[in-house]
Every structure is written in structure tokens, then in C-alpha cells.
């Protein structure tokens, strides 16, 4: 069927199609222009762009800013911090969200509509609403000495990870519940006939079918958690535990900021999200089909 569709669609080149390509090339270059411009700026010394403006021909092109940014902002350390927060957070978010979605859409536990509302609505709340009480709460939750310098949840990777999980679970429940609702009923019925318990229905039957959606959500969540700075800003106080987003601030002075150096740092910081997207692009789109494939 796929091949048939393909052949029917690949018609000989028409002027309309050329027009479409022309339009798309123009627009996508326009879309990329600001990015290219900032990469271009990061290759030029600040004194030069300061004198000539950003939109000008270069006298000198250098990668020096990338070297400086890598060293001055201590990027490797902060990449690791972010990794320590985001990877467990994404795994835990997807696990909890998929199970809750499963309970809502497949098991239909009593009160599942209320559950869906609670989780989805929770994700619509503005972050800033939660900040102050959350800070107070984190200072009240004790942790043993080996898990936290502050002896509380405040200023720990765990704390930042947990709020990411709590906050993002809502969105994932919403998407996954929609997705699972559209899975054919028969598959669970067959599993139930086989005497599968709830866990097996979830882990062995439902979850494998949700793989594309999980991949898509993982990509989105990675971009969101990676770029977040507010949670860490409020819930951390040790400079060497902060995530990568704040490492960029190390390139700013109390007053003076070399913006071209900052641009180089920003490009380096943006790389992982760009790479993750490109690697997962295919699965990402397939996964976001949100309850439908044409197979």
C-alpha cells in the first residue's frame, strides 16, 4: 500500500511544485537566518561587531570564542549536572505518566476522569505560582547527610529532578492517555483472557505499543528540562551543581558582557538539543501521531 501511494504521488515535476520549493527554501532560510546570524557573530571579535554592527562583512573570523566559552564556562561540568538531572527525570516522568495514563485509559480505575483533570490541569499552572511554597517545602524535607549537604531537599539534584517529574508528568499523562485511549480494546482483552495482571498488561502489552509516543515525549521533555533554569535558580544554592543554562551566565560579567562570546557559548549549549532532535526526528514525528498511524 505504501508503495502504491508513493508512486501515485510522485508525479513529474510541475511548475507548481517548483514554486512550492522556492517558497519553502525562502521561508526556511528566513527561519534560520537569525540563527546563522548569531553563529556568524560568535565567529567575530566583539570589538569588530561593536564598531561595525552585526550586519556587516567580517575582517576576521576566529573560533577563539568557542575555545574560551568551553573553558571559561566550564561546560563539561555543567553538561554533566544537567544530564544527572534530566535523564533520571525523563525516565521517571515517562514511567509514572505512562502508568497513570494506563490506569486512566485502559484500566479505567474509578475516578479516572478526576485523575486526568488533576494531572493535566497541574501542568497548566504557571511555574512562578509554585516557587515560594516549594522553596519553603524543600527546606522542611529532611534528607540524610550522605544525600544532601544542606540536610534537606533544598540544593540537591534530587529536588530539582522531582519537581521536573511532578511538573511534566501532567503533560505526558495528557498525551499518553489520549494515545492509549485510541489503542484497540482487543489487545487488553486478549491479555486478560491469558490471566495477565495489571502490571503485565501495562509493562508487556500496552507500553511496547506506546514506544513511538514515549520517544516523542522524551524528545520534547529533553528540550524543556534541558532549557529550564527557573527551578534550579530557586531550588539550588551551590554554584557547581547548577545546570548548563546557568553556566552561560558565567560568561557574563557584573556589568560587561561580551555578547559574541556568549553567542559561542549559547551555540555550544544548544548543540545537545539539536542533536537529540535530529537523531530522533523520525521517531519523534511518528510518535506524535497521537493515536493514529496509517501503517
Amino acid at each position: 500500500m505504501t508503495a502504491a501511494v508513493e508512486s501515485r504521488r510522485r508525479r513529474p515535476v510541475r511548475p507548481l511544485r517548483l514554486l512550492l520549493h522556492g517558497f519553502l527554501i525562502l521561508v526556511s532560510l528566513g527561519w534560520l537566518a537569525p540563527l546563522l546570524l548569531s553563529v556568524y557573530a560568535s565567529l567575530r571579535p566583539y570589538s569588530e561587531t561593536a564598531a561595525k554592527g552585526y550586519f556587516s562583512l567580517p575582517d576576521r573570523i576566529t573560533l577563539q570564542y568557542y575555545v574560551d566559552a568551553w573553558q571559561q564556562a566550564e561546560l563539561p561540568k555543567y553538561y554533566l549536572n544537567t544530564l544527572l538531572i534530566t535523564v533520571p527525570a525523563i525516565v521517571l516522568t515517562l514511567f509514572l505518566a505512562s502508568f497513570v495514563a494506563f490506569a486512566i485509559s485502559r484500566v479505567r480505575v474509578p475516578g479516572s476522569m478526576a485523575l486526568l483533570i488533576l494531572f493535566t490541569a497541574g501542568n497548566l499552572l504557571p511555574q512562578q505560582v509554585l516557587i515560594t511554597p516549594l522553596y519553603a517545602l524543600y527546606n522542611l524535607i529532611p534528607l540524610p547527610w550522605w544525600a544532601s549537604d544542606s540536610l534537606t531537599l533544598y540544593d540537591t539534584y534530587l529536588g530539582v529532578m522531582l519537581i521536573h517529574v511532578a511538573f511534566q508528568t501532567g503533560f505526558c499523562v495528557f498525551v499518553l492517555a489520549n494515545y492509549m485511549r485510541a489503542l484497540p480494546e482487543e489487545i487488553s482483552e486478549a491479555a486478560i483472557m491469558d490471566g495477565a495482571g495489571v502490571w503485565r498488561q501495562y509493562w508487556q502489552v500496552t507500553l511496547p505499543l506506546c514506544k513511538p509516543a514515549l520517544a516523542a515525549l522524551a524528545t520534547l521533555q529533553f528540550a524543556w528540562m534541558y532549557n529550564d533554569f527557573l527551578w534550579a535558580l530557586v531550588l539550588m544554592s551551590s554554584g557547581d551543581k547548577l545546570p548548563i543554562t546557568s553556566a552561560l551566565n558565567n560568561l557574563r560579567g557584573q556589568f560587561f558582557t561580551d555578547y559574541n562570546l556568549l553567542a559561542a557559548g549559547a551555540v555550544l549549549v544548544a548543540l545537545p538539543t539539536v542533536i537529540v532532535f535530529n537523531l530522533l526526528q523520525k521517531q519523534f514525528i511518528a510518535g506524535l501521531t497521537l493515536g493514529s498511524t496509517k501503517g
Binding site: 534537606t152 533544598y154 544554592s237 554554584g239 547548577l242 558565567n250 557574563r252 560579567g253
Partner: peptide
């Protein structure tokens, strides 16, 4: 030494001093 970027340090000063400074 616990170095925190200038901006974050300033935004965070209340919580920092009340928390575990």
C-alpha cells in the same frame, strides 16, 4: 569557594541566606 554566577546569586540572595548559606 562556591561560585554562583552574578545574576543568579543576586536573584537568589533571600533564599540563599535563609536556606543553607
Amino acid at each position: 569557594v562556591n561560585t554562583v554566577d552574578h545574576n543568579t546569586f543576586q536573584e537568589n540572595i533571600n533564599r540563599y541566606l535563609k536556606g543553607s548559606p
